[in-house]
Simulated scan of single mutants.
Amino acid sequence: MKVVKEVFVCGGKLIKLSHKSISTKTSMNVNVYLPKQYYSQDLPRKERIPTVVFLSGLTCTPDNASEKAFWQFQADKYGFAMVFPDTSPRGDEVASDPEGSWDFGHGAGFYVNATQEPYAQHYMMYDYIHKELPQTLDSHFNKDGVAKLDFQDNVAITGHSMGGFGALSGYLRGYSEKRYKSCSAFAPIVNPSKVPWGQKAFKGYLGDERAQWQAYDPCSLIKNVRRTGDDKILIHIGDADPFLEEHLKPELLLEAVKSTSWQGHVQVKKVHGFDHSYYFISTFVPEHAEFHAKNLGLI
């Protein structure tokens, strides 16, 4: 990995990185926030610093949430690192929407492994986020026998909009192996198979076979994933979100969990007056940070 820039912020540093991805066959950017505990000589840790992964929404880069969500304050408060991946492969060689729209292609990888050409050449975002990136970060930061950061075992995941879908999908698909300790989401696309954003992306990346769609759709996955322990999913969404009724439809997830082991353990908090922006996200980041900190063993 190449360090592009180091930014002092709050009590730690935001490290902007670039690397050649095996999954996407492109250069990928990722931002990592190292909290004050990483640098402190006064706070020795017996265990590695855990990680929270934030998956961003349509059109975003790793910089959006790094600059606007204010996760760094919470990371310092509880002692976790933050990982902000990109939302798609990029570059002139990477196919995008032939019509040039913003909700498919560059900046809109939907965190799936594409099976349809020409997208299958580069849009292997599921493998990149959940398999390659944790291993690559581990190799970069934990060198010379000193392992201070945990990118693979004590990890939580969250995200916004398309990234909220990616967080829910990745959490549920990896649930049996406990890939993530906890999951939350901000205004997620909960049932992409049934809404325009998701249908466009799934058809473009996965083709017409609905079984391929259901393999990523949270509303399908959660019916077949048996909850263990006291695991919960936390979701916030604004009642003034302009995408609420057409693309997000949180009620579909609550309907899907009925008569499953998740019933009563998926909390959807609809908050009055809030929209789809980072003003909304940053307002409720503290609650999500506390939720994950408890599951990561920091509280």
Results as ranks from 00 to 15, higher is better:
Asn142His: 10
Leu133Trp: 01
His122Asn: 14
Ala120Met: 07
Glu117Cys: 04
Arg45Pro: 03
Ser66Val: 11
Tyr78Ser: 11
Met125Glu: 03
Pro85Thr: 04
Asn142Phe: 14
Gln74Val: 01
His122Pro: 03
Lys143Arg: 14
Met82Cys: 07
Leu133Ser: 01
Pro134Trp: 00
Pro98Trp: 01
Ala120Ser: 15
Phe70Asn: 11
Pro89Leu: 08
Pro134Phe: 01
Tyr38Val: 07
Ala65Leu: 08
Ala114Gln: 09
Gly57Asp: 11
Tyr38Cys: 04
Asp97Lys: 01
Leu133Asp: 00
Gln116Cys: 12
Arg48Glu: 05
Thr61Trp: 05
Pro98Tyr: 00
Gln72Leu: 03
Lys77Trp: 05
Asn142Leu: 10
Tyr119Asp: 10
Glu67Val: 06
Ser139Trp: 06
Tyr126Asn: 14
Gln116His: 13
Ala108Met: 09
Ser66Leu: 13
Tyr119Gln: 07
His130Leu: 01
Ala81Gly: 02
Asp86His: 07
Arg45Val: 09
Gly105Met: 14
Met124Tyr: 01
Glu47Leu: 04
Pro85Arg: 06
Gln121Glu: 14
Phe84Gly: 05
Leu58Gln: 02
Asp76Gly: 05
Gly57Thr: 02
Pro118Gly: 08
Ala75Phe: 08
Gly91Lys: 03
Gln121Val: 03
Gly100Ile: 04
Phe73Arg: 12
Ala108Leu: 10
Tyr39Leu: 06
Gly100His: 09
Ala69Ser: 06
Ala65Asn: 03
Thr115Phe: 15
Leu55Asp: 01
Gln116Phe: 10
Tyr123Ser: 11
Val53Thr: 07
